[in-house]
Design a protein around this nucleic acid. Sequence first.
RNA 1: UCCUCGAUAGCUCAACGGUAGAGCAUCCGGCUGUUAACCGGAGGGUUGCUGGUUCGAAUCCAGCUCGGGGAGCCA
Length: 463
Amino acid sequence: MEKTTIKELYIRKENYLNKKIKVNGWVRTVRASKNFGFIELNDGTYFANLQVVYDENLANFKEVSKLVTGSAIRVTGELVESPGAKQPFELKAESLEIEGHSAPDYPLQKKRHTFEFLRTIAHLRPRTNTFSAVFRVRSTAAYAIHKFFQERGFVYVHTPIITGSDAEGAGEMFRVTTLGFDKMPRDDRGNVDFTRDFFGKETNLTVSGQLEAEAYALAFGNVYTFGPTFRAENSNTPRHAAEFWMIEPEMAFADLQDDMDLAEDMLKYIISYVLKNAPLEMQFFNSFIDKGLLERLENVVNADFGHITYTEAIEILKNSGEQFEYPVEWGHDLQTEHERYITEKHFKKPVFVTDYPKEIKAFYMRMNDDGKTVAAMDLLAPGVGEIIGGSQREERLEHLGKRMDEQGLNKEEYWWYLDLRKYGGTRHAGFGLGFERLIMYLTGMTNIRDVICFPRTPKNAEF
RNA sequence: UCCUCGAUAGCUCAACGGUAGAGCAUCCGGCUGUUAACCGGAGGGUUGCUGGUUCGAAUCCAGCUCGGGGAGCCA
């Protein structure tokens, strides 16, 4: 007999009622009496458990009554209407095989756990309702991203994980080496001799696939990356991880406005897709994690995102009458409190802030005609702050070289990046979306460690 | 890295200078329809670590470790 999922039973119970079925799953709890008992069974496909009723007719009745939470079992029997009020049906067990016993010290109990504790058992937490929902939504959102870009003809590019550029400018990097730490080869001046290393040069884990994506955009037109990214920053916040996933589209023959249009379309598409394809999970989050979640997401889908320049943002903040901890002044980067005011209080919806002073932005962003600002955009969203950062790239070789000089970058190391401007350079633009931050936004989860299966953060690489 | 709060049984918490407790979980027993089942019993602790103050420290003080929240860096 073919096995059935518990989700299938709930969705199409009329197909199974009063018929013999077979299910697999893990025991959530056992309520045993002298001559019969109940098992709450969960197979990871649905929030609701399947109530299994068993009695002395089971060959292994005594053993079943002693099952410990967490045990893996297979049950065959008839699905019948339940006399109990709390479930529409139940499985009357005819045979129950114990696939894997659980030890008595199984750490998950049927009562509520803190997320902090569950992080210490990251290998078991996917068996809880919350994490079951989080990682199903994560999977759905990942699919939605591919679907969005593929439907628009974007080419999926796998940029390297190991990079030879040691200054992509996006943050501290993890070094990749096969050199032994106890006897590092040294050159004449006592520096580590990387010519003896595996790649013959210093290499690191990537902090961004953007530069490589630009090369492919200037061949395919529209491309996107979607892969792991690594930052060695000592960031101890609920929004940062050392290993995370990032989506980086890049479009040739596109300017900043095209870039923002794409970002807005993409966000709305993903949200709509997840709302439609993971409705149970989204209702769960709305009920137990974040009461205003569905309303907020539906607003985002229906709202036209706000657009202001950095200079306008400074004016709004100065005229707000708010007392900010950090002073508002043209030329300083917007602080978290400033971003929150703009998106949560002033606009009450996602807002693109554009045209930042060149001093506070990366070298590759395109210089505006005013000579003071660059064609950058940050998308600020209520609740999570900066969710997307992007720009139109500097395609003019002279301007790019000047900016690299200003920021003290070694142009020789970027020879191939500069070549892209030399051989048929075009207007082009792109952005980066932190996948985990998107998942946080979609689920209402407030800690990035709870939307990554096995999160890597400073002092934490267990599992 | 800075600021701030915290760490007591497997989990969630109480005890706040005077004998370390409860609920759940676990183990044993009872119970013929349970619903975070119920009833009875049992085991379970170097109170994060190190030092100090005190007749006496889970409790007060210092340092350290780890964790939460906020900030910076950013996605």
